[in-house]
Design a protein around this nucleic acid. Structure first.
Ligand SMILES: [Mn+2]
Ligand SMILES: [Mn+2]
Ligand SMILES: [Zn+2]
Ligand SMILES: [Zn+2]
Lengths: 131, 131
DNA sequence: ACTCGTAATGGGATCCATTTTCATATAGCC
DNA sequence: GGCTATATGAAAATGGATCCCATTACGAGT
C-alpha cells in the first residue's frame, strides 16, 4: 500500500501531525524548510496525495480553492468547523448528517454516493481580537 | 443592486438558466459563442461573480476544484446531489442538515457560521452506460 | 555489507482556471 | 444628442497543482 519509507515522506507526515490543524501544501513546505528539513515542493504534494489516497488525512478547500490537509483521527472519517480567520478547526459530531446523507443517497437512485460537509465561522479568539 | 443591464449580462443569465444544471464558466462561454452570442470570457467570469454575490446562483466545486454554477431556485438556498460522470444534479430536501448545522454552530462558540454540503454519485443513466 | 532494479526525489517547465490590466465601447441619465 | 461612469474583451499575469526527467537512494536479495 504505502511505497518506500523515505526521509521526506516521514518528515511530511510528522510535521503535518504536529500542526493539529488544516495546512496547505505550500505552508507545510515552508514549515519543513524552516525547520531545516529540506524537502522539495513536488515531494510534499506527492506525499499529501498519497496520504489522501490512503485515507490518512482529511482535505478541505478554503474559499480561494486551495486544498488544506489535516491528519485524520484514528476513528475514521470526520467533518470540521473551521475558523475563516485563523484556521483553527474542531471535529464535529456528525452522526445526524451521516445518516441523512446515507438515506438521501439511497433514495436517489444514484450509486457510489459521497458527501462533503464543512462548517466555517469565526472562532471565539478571533471574535475577541479586532472586530 | 446589479449594475448596468448589458446585452452580455442578460445573455449569460439567460443561457445559464437554460442549462438547468451546473456548468463551469468556460463551458458557459463555449455555449454562448456557439449560439452566436459573442461574449468575452472575462465578462462571463465577471457576470457569474456578480450573480453569486447577488445570491442568484449556487456554486459548487468539482473534484478538480473548478467552480460550477447553477441558477438558484426562487425559494432560496439549496443543496444538490450531482452526478460525477455527467453533471446532472437534483436539489435535495436538506432541512435535517440545516437544523444540524444551526445547532452545531450555535453550540460551538463560533460566530457567522456558514456551511457547505454537497452529495455526488453516479446517476442512473450513467450507471446504465458502460460500467 | 554489497549490488542492483526500481521507486522516489526535486527543480524547473507546464498546465489551466481565474484575475487583472487597460484601451475602447456603451448604458443610461441630463 | 452629448457625457461620463461603468462595462467589455483581448492579452498578460497569477498561482496552485501537476508533469518531466536526470539523479538519488530505499530495500530486497544475495
Ligand atoms: Mn461524513
Ligand atoms: Mn444549507
Ligand atoms: Zn479564529
Ligand atoms: Zn450521470
Amino acid at each position: 500500500m504505502g511505497g518506500r519509507l523515505t526521509r521526506q515522506r516521514a518528515s511530511v507526515l510528522r510535521v503535518l501531525t504536529a500542526c493539529q490543524d488544516f495546512v496547505s501544501a505550500q505552508e507545510l513546505h515552508v514549515r519543513l524548510v524552516t525547520a531545516d528539513i529540506p524537502v522539495g515542493l513536488s515531494t510534499v504534494y506527492r506525499a499529501l496525495r498519497d496520504l489522501e489516497r490512503a485515507g490518512r488525512v482529511d482535505v478541505v478547500r478554503d474559499e480561494a480553492g486551495e486544498r488544506l490537509y489535516r491528519p485524520r483521527p484514528a476513528d475514521g472519517h470526520r467533518h470540521y468547523l473551521i475558523c475563516r480567520r485563523c484556521g483553527r478547526s474542531r471535529p464535529l459530531d456528525s452522526d445526524v448528517v451521516e445518516r441523512w446523507a446515507e438515506r438521501v443517497g439511497a433514495e436517489s437512485g444514484y450509486s457510489a454516493v459521497e458527501h462533503t460537509v464543512e462548517l466555517s465561522g469565526i472562532c471565539g479568539r478571533c471574535t475577541g481580537l479586532c472586530a
